[in-house]
Each structure stands twice: as structure tokens, then as C-alpha cells.
Simulated scan of single mutants.
Amino acid sequence: MKDESPNDWLRAELQDTLDEDYEIELEDAVLSREIARIYRDKHPSQMPRPEYFSELLRLQSELIRLQDWVSYHKEKVVVIFEGRDSAGKGGAIKRITQRLNPRVCRVVALPAPSDREKTQWYFQRYVSHLPAGGEIVLFDRSWYNRAGVERVMGFATDSQVQQFFDDVPEFERMLVRSGIRLVKYWFSITDEEQQMRFLMRIHDPLKQWKLSPMDLQSRVRWEDYTYAKEEMLERTNIPEAPWYIVPGNDKKRARLNCINHLLGQFPYGDVPHDHVSLPDRVFNPDYERDVLPPELYVPQLY
């Protein structure tokens, strides 16, 4: 039988996974009609879904190759995702991890620090989540909380913020010297786009959980966040760990651009794999399967 070409595989995979991907994409489908209409008017050049899914699957297949390379060579990878609330960090992370092995690639999204953690060295609670050899860690917000939300909302003093700016370049150089490959992304959206996405969350019962009092305050303090972001990028953009800005107004293109760029940060390639074959099942002629009581089964409602 003739081997399938990569394009044949992509078409088959695309057909098999559309249901799963459409489920993830429900975030765009469950909006109120009026909000959805306004959003379409603001984004007239959205990428067609078949084109988006086809390219996403191609990039995700490359992410699997990257994962295998990281695992085989015991590389240590940290990817930081920062940006304003609703900028699209979570959506990009979800597409990156969607087909990867959670034992290799994991997401770290820490809650507010506990009273005990507030007394620790600031970076201490992040250090325990850093990767060992063969692991990829994606930080959905990171130690840069101190330069952003903690600074703007008054959870950190001016001296603590200045100490952070003094410390973080050397902290990240230490990580790089230890063999960690560190990549930092800032997802950037406009004032108008954030307002639209917050309205979408307010009108979408499946997304209202994403809105917090802190999110609402971020609208009030847009300019304060802008100033904090600009100083953060200026003072922490070091050669060993530069910042990369992802324009995020178009969510689908932002995800694809981010994944494509991330793949370009590593000299990954194919690695050896053990040949896998399915062994024959062992049949025992004396074995009789027990009949289980019906109450053990999940009701078949669908």
C-alpha cells in the first residue's frame, strides 16, 4: 500500500478532529447575537476556519516533534506568557498543549501568594515549578506579576518593584546559565479590543467565570498598566532572555504566529523512536467474563 503523503495525513487528521476543535472554539459561537455581530464588524478579515484548523494542526504536529526532541535530549524549556487581561494568553497556551504529553509539557498558573509565601524570597515559589531535563513549562503569568498587577494595584511597594527590576535580569541569566531555554511572550491588544472581549465575557454565561474584580479594575487603570508594561519591557529585555510581542487583536492569527515563532526558537529535529507493534492478545479458553450489575454502568442518555 502506497504511503500517505503529509498532506493526506493532515486532511485525515483535520477531518477526525474538527468536532474537538469546534468544541474548543465554542467561545466564539455562544455569544449573544448582538455582541457576535459587533465583533464580526470589528474583525472583517478573520481567517477562514478550515484554513486556521489546517495550519493549527500542521504546527501542532511540529510541537510534537519539539516535545520529542526536548524529551530525548533532556532539554529544559520555560515559556512565559504575559499580557493584559483577555489578551489571548490562555487561548494560545491551550492550543500549544492540546496534543502534547502532560508528563512533558505542563502549565503553571499560580494563585495569589499565601501569607507564608509573601514572606519568602520573591522568586522562591516560582523556582519549585521550573523544569527538570526533558520538560517544558508554560507559565500563564509569572514572576512578572510584580511588575504588572502587583505594582498597579498597590500589592507591592515602590521599593519592592525597584528591587524586582534589579534582580530579575540576573535571575533570568542564572536560569539560562543553568541550561534552561527561556522564551518570553507579551500578548498585546488595543484598548478597544479589550473592552470588546470584556463585554463578550459579561454576555457569555460560559465565560463569566473569567471576569474578576481585578479584571474590571484593569479597565479603569488601563494607562497605569500601559506605563508599567513599557517600563517592564525596557528594563527586563535582556539578550539572554528577550521579550517577543504578539499582536493579539486577531486571536486565531495570534495563536498561529506565536506557535510558529516558538518553534523557531529551538534547533529541534527528528529523534530515534522505538518501533511499536501491537502484540497478540492472549486468549484463555477457560476464562468466563463475569456479568456486572447494571447499576455500575453510567446511564446511556446520549
Rank of each mutant, 00 (worst) to 15 (best):
V152M: 07
H73Y: 15
L175K: 06
W143Q: 01
Q60T: 13
T226G: 08
C258F: 10
Y225C: 03
Y227M: 04
P48R: 13
Y225V: 00
A132Y: 04
L262P: 02
G154N: 05
L100A: 06
Y287M: 00
W9S: 13
Y287K: 03
R33H: 12
R116G: 09
S218F: 09
L256S: 09
R289E: 15
A12M: 08
R201Q: 10
M47H: 08
W143L: 04
D28Q: 13
L211K: 04
G83E: 06
A112L: 07
Y297I: 10
L14G: 13
H203C: 12
L175M: 14
T157E: 07
T226W: 00
Q208R: 12
T97E: 02
F164G: 06
T190P: 00
C258D: 01
M47T: 14
V276E: 06
F187L: 13
K89E: 12
P111V: 05
W243Y: 07
H43R: 03
K76M: 13
E27C: 06
F171S: 04
D85N: 07
V271T: 10
P44C: 12
Q67T: 08
E117C: 04
E230L: 08
L18M: 12
L59D: 02
K252T: 08
I35W: 05
M174L: 12
Y122L: 00
P272Q: 14
L199Q: 06
P131R: 01
G83K: 01
Q15F: 11
V30Q: 07
S277W: 10
N237H: 14
A241V: 00
T17C: 10
D41N: 09
L100D: 02
L278R: 10
Y297M: 09
E192P: 02
G133A: 12
S159D: 15
L292W: 04
D68P: 03
P293H: 12
E23L: 12
Y52C: 10
E231A: 08
L206G: 00
L26T: 09
Q163S: 14
D280H: 15
Q163V: 06
K89R: 12
T226S: 08
N257M: 11
F283E: 09
Q15R: 14
P6E: 09
T157M: 07
I202F: 11
V77H: 02
L262E: 03
H261M: 05
R201L: 10
L199F: 03
N249M: 13
I64H: 01
E172N: 07
K42L: 13
D167C: 09
L278W: 08
F164K: 05
D68I: 03
Y72F: 15
S212Y: 11
V137P: 02
L233P: 05
A87R: 04
L211N: 09
F139S: 03
E150F: 01
W243V: 02
V70M: 01
T157A: 12
W243K: 06
R95G: 02
F139Q: 02
K89N: 08
L206A: 07
Q217S: 08
V176T: 09
E75V: 04
